[in-house]
């Protein structure tokens, strides 16, 4: 296991490096640049060159990359072009804010979806199953921001029960009760999206397993139904679900840009769009790295979980030796 982890981590570093290389190239290849954005009537071409020079933008791309990489390795994410603010100061709070929102929504949807899906598999096409199907259709079909706007209209404007937007009421920062009030609507929107797919996955995954011969054998042996479902079927059914969860993990920081916008949540999704339009290269690179790290972690966590739920998977061993 340890050996496997070390190997995976080393691979990850390589992958991360390649990602930064490609991202750096792509971001710089996008037409327009920070000095273009500063393009103001007052700046003559000469003055723009002076500015580009001050910002190091007149250097060849590979030199810029090496410089950036060097700073990165020292933990320096760089500064914004426009106002020379440390990138970390802008980025980290938004990562935290997004994580709060997404983690609550994600965990909530897992807590509801997986048991519900399991239950529905044991009584397929029952009322509960039909309701779940309906909820899934709605969740899949309704654009998140649209649902968000509907909720806002109803709960914030008409009924005036909930705050319209933001993470805290100004001056109430740190008050958990206040945070929960602000979380209610965006979490509802996001959970519905997650729920829609997780409930379906867990149900169909369970149904597939419940059809297997060994389940029939277990039942034939007289194993109680509870035990059949939870001990024999569930462990196997969880494998595809874990794959999906692992793939979804990066979303926890990548955020739901539209939901963040509608609820004015100060998160990373919003930041990314804003910074992309402003061609703030260093912020974009930092966001890319954070997201890439999450993807890598997501896959790693999924792999480890496989080993836990499925005894057939033995990490880091060549198939034959383990047998």
């Amino acid at each position: 296991m340890t050996e496997y982890l070390v190997r995976r981590l080393l691979q990850s570093v390589l992958v991360l490096f390649l990602i930064t290389l490609v991202a750096f190239g792509l971001i710089h290849a996008a037409p327009g640049g920070p000095t273009q954005i500063m393009l103001s009537p007052g700046l003559s071409p000469e003055a723009l060159k002076v500015q580009a020079h001050n910002l190091g933008l007149d250097q060849p791309l590979h030199i810029q990359y090496i410089r950036w990489l060097g700073d990165m390795l020292k933990g320096d994410l760089g500064y914004t072009f426009k106002n020379n603010l440390p990138v970390g100061d802008i980025l980290w709070p938004t990562v935290g804010n997004t994580l709060v929102l997404m983690a609550v929504a994600w965990l909530l949807s897992l807590i509801i979806a997986i048991p519900w899906g399991i239950y529905n598999s044991t009584s397929a096409y029952g009322i509960s199953d039909q309701v779940a199907s309906f909820v899934s259709y709605v969740g899949f079909a309704m654009p998140a921001f649209w649902f968000g706007i509907l909720l806002q209209e109803l709960f914030a404007l008409k009924l005036n029960l909930l705050p319209l937007s933001d993470m805290w009421t100004m001056g109430e920062e740190g008050n958990i009760g206040n945070l929960i009030l602000h979380l209610l609507m965006p979490v509802t929107v996001l959970s519905l999206g997650f729920l829609a797919s997780y409930v379906k996955y867990s149900r169909s995954s369970m149904l597939e397993v419940l059809d297997q011969d060994y389940i029939r054998t277990a039942r034939a042996k007289g194993v109680p139904e509870r035990k059949v479902v939870f001990r024999h079927a569930l462990r196997n059914a969880l494998i595809p679900i874990i794959t999906v969860l692992g793939l979804d993990l990066p979303i926890l920081v990548g955020g739901a840009t539209l939901t963040e916008r509608v609820f004015n949540w100060p998160g990373m999704g919003r930041l990314f769009i804003e910074m992309a339009l402003a061609r703030e290269y260093s912020v974009l690179m930092a966001i890319t790295i954070v997201t890439a790290v999450m993807v890598i972690i997501g896959n790693l966590v999924a792999d480890i979980l496989y080993a836990i739920v499925d005894p057939r998977v033995q990490l880091g061993r060549k198939g034959g030796r383990a047998a």
């Binding site: 806002q152 914030a156 404007l157 005036n160 937007s165 963040e260 509608v262 004015n264 919003r270 804003e274």
Partner: peptide
Amino acid sequence: VIYKIYADQNTEVQALLKGD
């Protein structure tokens, strides 16, 4: 004076309607 930033124009207008 509070200068408050809204990412979304629709939300901004709703904030005006709500009195935020």
